[in-house]
Design a protein around this nucleic acid. Sequence first.
DNA 1: AGTTTATGTCAGCCTTGTTGACTTTCCAAG
DNA 2: CTTGGAAAGTCAACAAGGCTGACATAAACT
Lengths: 170, 170
Amino acid sequence: MSDRGTGQAPISGESLLFLTDDQLRRGIEAMFFAYRGFTADPDRILQEYAYGRAHHRAIHFIKRSPGNTVNNLLDILGVTKQSLNRVLRALIEDGLVESRIGKQDRRERHLFLTETGQELEKELSEAQRGRMRAAYRDAGPDAVAGFRQVLEQIMDPEMRRHFQTFKEGS
Amino acid sequence: MSDRGTGQAPISGESLLFLTDDQLRRGIEAMFFAYRGFTADPDRILQEYAYGRAHHRAIHFIKRSPGNTVNNLLDILGVTKQSLNRVLRALIEDGLVESRIGKQDRRERHLFLTETGQELEKELSEAQRGRMRAAYRDAGPDAVAGFRQVLEQIMDPEMRRHFQTFKEGS
DNA sequence: AGTTTATGTCAGCCTTGTTGACTTTCCAAG
DNA sequence: CTTGGAAAGTCAACAAGGCTGACATAAACT
């Protein structure tokens, strides 16, 4: 906050070395390499079930807020309904996801994980959490706070809204 | 080691609340949403040139270490040579990348950006750095240090090796 | 009654990943 | 000098998962 009256000026009292192009490049590459690790474990598991990342994302967010409508999920995932539909159809056919017609608005479909769906979700999320937990533990709580803070700033405002919505509500 | 009035965690004196499943889930979702933002700006630019993320990645790492061999790039990007080759062929045909036969080992191809290639690289990386810079500035140096630390822990050891190699050498 | 909304579905296209098979080039060891 | 194998390139085929466009329902809204 007390930015010592600059905010922008070439140099302030505070070191701004962390904003050099080289530092930024390192951050960019860190994102690239880390994201590969981030998805590696679930990817391995998904392969056994002949699913892909798209299925994982759907499963994750259905688990996250059961009863969500298709439209809502579309918004969160940022894909077209045709793309999502292909994935949902497979998950419903395979008995991992249940689609219930809305009671107030019968046009809506509310999505839930079945027993089987919850099992796969657990397997996937435990693998992914395992890696995150190890990383968090090694880095420590302060680093984790910074990690989350920077990630939140990187998001588009619209995604940040989704993210923050999830933070509060169960 | 008095427990700091939290209870809940039957573990050590230090609060380990940042390792709860819920905290980990938030981190996972943060990675998901942030990565979308991370790639959004370059994606928009690439569309104008009818290129994709794969082209961006190749361009980035060729710029990063000019003269690298194809095999080396393959290792960094973690894709098959057929995949990379398709991308490289397009970039070479379009005059963005130059492939020079090795002098010691004439089987090898060393990759360089042409003038035009450097221009596109600059456009892409400036867009991506712009977002990162804003995020870094808003979060501050300590948060950035934590961000980088956690990302590094998330990587596979093999990727971490690539990442750290890049940290030192120019 | 007519319009809008939510969803689903079909068809076709693109990018980017995969395997497998095969060739060319060329270094290096026998 | 011959041969084995590494590095690179190419062709073919395929799959996942994005996209657009068009169209069909059903239900809600006006």
